[in-house]
Design a protein around this nucleic acid. Structure first.
Length: 426
DNA sequence: AAGGCGGGGCG
DNA sequence: CGCCCAGCCTT
């Protein structure tokens, strides 16, 4: 009952029975009538500019609408067109993406903008095949931009669409598997309204995010409940089929919060590839704590006890007062702190005096790793050290706004301010 | 095909 | 707190 023999094969293999033409027509009407009535008024739905629509689609990958809206406005403000994005400095585009996550998205988008300038005269290509060649544009985004910006009947299969379709047709394919996407694309190609492909795709996604949700869906109020095989057969709880992701692996790190004599903080730029590439954080190191707990490796005594007292008395009167009251000498060197000093001396050529442990300690969960950062605050006497690595910089707090901070860094900074700043009036 | 890559909302 | 949300790139 399809026009396409390729689709026929796919449907047969997946056990899908495609609807007759009149049912497809009725489905389009039910879905689009609902969309016309209920669609949200979103900024990128007020434009037909392919660049703006492209920006919105890249931002909306793995990111909620409410989160995206302010970033969308700010980004278009700073980079109003393809040429502006292509020419922007990297730190500017990272800053504009700060907090959004998956930062390779914006780097790839800039590469694509440069591609468009070089190969398409700066004009966004209006052909799905050409669109799909752009860096960072995969099958979903190619379909979304083609259909929404250019009214080309291409499927835009995201997680919402796979969930909706798996329930409508009781499709057993595992939506976590890349290979399954082909099945859903074939289904949408059969169903998509050639008159309003962009609205059709957006309607499916809206439905998936509001009514046909992953948890606690409301099929009884769905505009397309009459088409929902899983609902009619009482199998809603079985769809979609999706294998679970692995748990993030815990990783313990030490966050090094150092200030120099000018009250500047040491920041380090992360490597240009990998996790949080090119973003700035307080130096993060990973001590081998297992090796530490074993032997009673004599911790070197405070290498600068006198300096410590001087520092504390001079720059941190409240800290000095607090430690005196508690009947303690200024921060004793634990084994960990001795290790820390060794690592900091080796990596950064600095000899800090540690003033507080467990400050700026935070947890941050990525999709595959769980960072557990223990913060250590210290001061260094020397100012501009010649051995400071290339990727490091002493930065005044007033200039933090010029640096792109990932969320774990923002958390460390917040914690440090709450725990140490207020406590000691630094 | 599998793994790397961020961040936030919900119960 | 653990659960959920997931496209594109690289390997």
């Amino acid at each position: 009952m399809t026009t396409n023999p390729e689709h026929e094969k796919i449907f047969k293999a997946a056990g899908i029975e495609m609807w007759p033409a009149d049912k497809i027509t009725a489905f389009r009407k039910a879905l689009l009538d609902w969309y016309d009535k209920e669609k949200r008024d979103l900024p990128w739905r007020r434009t037909s500019d392919p660049y703006s629509i492209w920006v919105s689609e890249i931002m909306l990958q793995q990111t909620r609408v409410d989160t995206v809206i302010p970033y969308y406005h700010n980004f278009l403000d700073r980079f109003p067109d393809i040429a502006a994005l292509a020419a922007a400095p990297e730190d500017a585009i990272l800053k504009a993406w700060e907090g959004l996550g998956y930062y390779s998205r914006v780097k790839n988008m800039q590469k694509a903008a440069q591609q468009i300038v070089a190969e398409y005269g700066g004009v966004f290509p209006a052909d799905p095949q050409e669109i799909a060649k752009l860096k960072g544009i995969g099958p979903y985004t190619a379909g979304a931009v083609s259909s929404i910006a250019f009214q080309i009947p291409e499927p835009a299969v995201d997680g919402n669409v796979m969930r909706v379709m798996s329930r409508l047709f009781e499709i057993d394919a595992d939506i976590a598997k890349p290979a399954s996407r082909k099945i859903f694309e074939a289904v949408v190609r059969e169903l998509i309204d050639p008159e309003r492909p962009g609205d059709f795709n957006q309607a499916l996604m809206d439905l998936g995010s509001s009514i046909c949700t992953p948890l606690n869906p409301q099929p009884e109020i769905s505009p397309i409940k009459a088409f929902n095989a899983a609902y009619k057969n009482g199998t809603m709880h079985l769809y979609p089929v999706k294998t679970k992701a692995k748990r993030p692996v815990p990783m313990n790190l030490q966050g090094i919060i150092l200030q120099n004599g000018e009250k500047q903080f040491l920041l380090e730029k992360r490597p240009s590839s990998g996790l949080l590439a090119d973003f700035w954080t307080f130096p993060l190191i990973q001590l081998d704590l297992d090796a530490l707990s074993g032997s009673a490796a004599a911790a070197p005594g405070p290498p600068a006890a006198i300096q410590t007292e001087l520092l504390v008395a001079e720059d941190f009167p409240k800290l000095a007062e607090a430690t005196t009251k508690a009947g303690k000498t200024p921060p004793a060197f634990s084994q960990i702190e001795a290790q820390l000093s060794g690592a900091v001396a080796e990596k950064y050529g600095l000899k800090p005096v540690w003033l507080k442990a467990e400050t700026g300690s935070v947890t941050h969960v990525f999709s595959h790793i769980k960072w557990q950062i223990t913060g250590y605050y210290g001061r260094v006497l020397t100012g501009g050290d010649s051995r400071l690595p290339e990727q490091c910089r002493w930065v005044s707090e007033n200039d933090f706004a010029d640096y792109a901070f990932p969320v774990p860094q923002q958390k460390m900074w917040q914690k440090f301010q709450q725990q140490t700043r207020k406590e000691f009036g630094l």
